[in-house]
């Protein structure tokens, strides 16, 4: 228990945790970061290209917090399992490896999990090699791999809303970013495979943030991406090793089928199991993610000194996470100054 010197413990080293750590250390606070994986950067750190910045996720994550920072120490392979309030009002975080760390405040920046696409079995993920998730593609590109290298004129189908807005999987929320990611990925594919055909299958296209609508426009105009309003609900293998897909063109009201080389599933964000705080699972908001104390206290949880930032609260895009993490850092700093 040498960590009493820390002002705050940040759970998670994705872009939310890194941003908050950078802010707090700039304000002279000592920060301990707990990361369950081997390396920092979270989901974004594995993205090959981040919209609208045009840089890789790794670059983006590294630009947030310089590697050597005297005020920040990072413990990787440390999975927080529970939080408890100590008699003096500070908080203790216990990890699955048996260690415990305490500080006056804790910032939960544990992000989200990716939807397990195998649960939508009819889409054939894990059964047919041609079915990939958005995460798979981003990781392969990030590593410099080139899936479907051998195909000439490869046909791609991109399925939106897999594991979002799906009550069959007990998921009601919209994951917000996948619309943009799906369109960005379509343009990406067209750039990497100039002879390819890409069709996006969507229920609704929600191009809500700055630059999204422009991206959509660009995808149609300059990349010739097709958009079909319909949901692919059945996938079968063809004799020549491709994928036979069935949807309905709902705008025309006609059944639609295609044979594609790859089916890319835009998997949504799902909430982690809630951490236990003082023996009770944390409050959840309507979407199942971490709930906050009030409509105004958007970074404080029901427990004093326990803050939350980023996509742990629900689906967010990178810009929103950066802003939210800074706000959480400011709140934490204010709390520590009391």
């Amino acid at each position: 228990m040498n960590s009493n010197h820390n002002d705050t413990i940040i759970i998670g080293t994705g872009i939310a945790g890194l941003t908050a750590a950078a802010e707090l250390s700039a304000r002279g606070r000592k920060v301990l970061m707990l990361e369950k994986n081997d390396s920092t950067g979270g989901h974004v750190g594995q993205w090959s290209v981040c919209f609208p910045f045009g840089i890789s996720g790794r670059e983006l994550a590294e630009s947030i917090l310089p590697q050597s920072n005297a005020n920040v120490s990072i413990r990787t392979r440390s999975t927080a399992s529970a939080i408890s309030t100590l008699p003096d009002g500070s908080l203790s975080v216990s990890c699955t490896d048996g260690t415990a760390h305490s500080a006056r405040t804790v910032l939960l920046a544990s992000g989200y999990g990716m939807f397990d696409a195998r649960l939508k079995e009819e889409l054939g993920y894990g059964i047919y090699p041609g079915v990939l998730t958005s995460e798979d593609i981003e990781r392969q590109w990030q590593k410099g791999e080139r899936p479907l290298a051998g195909h000439s004129n490869p046909r791609f189908a991109i399925v939106h809303c897999v594991g979002s807005r799906d009550l069959k999987c007990n998921i009601r929320h919209c994951s917000k970013v996948c619309c943009m990611v799906g369109v960005k990925m379509a343009t990406e594919i067209r750039q990497r495979y100039p002879d390819s055909q890409v069709t996006n299958y969507y229920m609704d296209l929600r191009m809500f943030d700055n630059g999204y609508e422009e991206l959509y426009h660009d995808a149609q105009l300059n990349y010739n991406v097709q958009f079909v309003r319909g949901r692919i609900s059945e996938v079968a293998p063809t004799n020549d090793g491709r994928l036979y897909i069935r949807a309905e063109d709902t705008l025309l009201g006609k059944p639609l089928r295609d044979k594609v080389d790859a089916l890319v599933l835009m998997i949504g964000m799902s909430a982690h199991e809630p951490l236990h705080v003082d023996g009770e699972p944390m409050n959840r908001s309507i979407n199942g993610f971490v709930g906050t104390a009030s409509p105004v206290q958007i970074n404080l949880t029901a427990t004093p000194g326990l803050f939350v930032a980023g996509a742990a609260k629900g689906p967010m895009n990178i810009t929103e996470v950066l802003a939210d993490a800074r706000a959480a850092a400011a709140e934490t700093d204010k709390y520590l100054s009391r």
Partner: peptide, 9 residues
């Protein structure tokens, strides 16, 4: 069965 291709495979 068409919606559970894992079984078929």
């Amino acid at each position: 069965g068409k919606l559970t291709p894992g079984t078929k495979a």
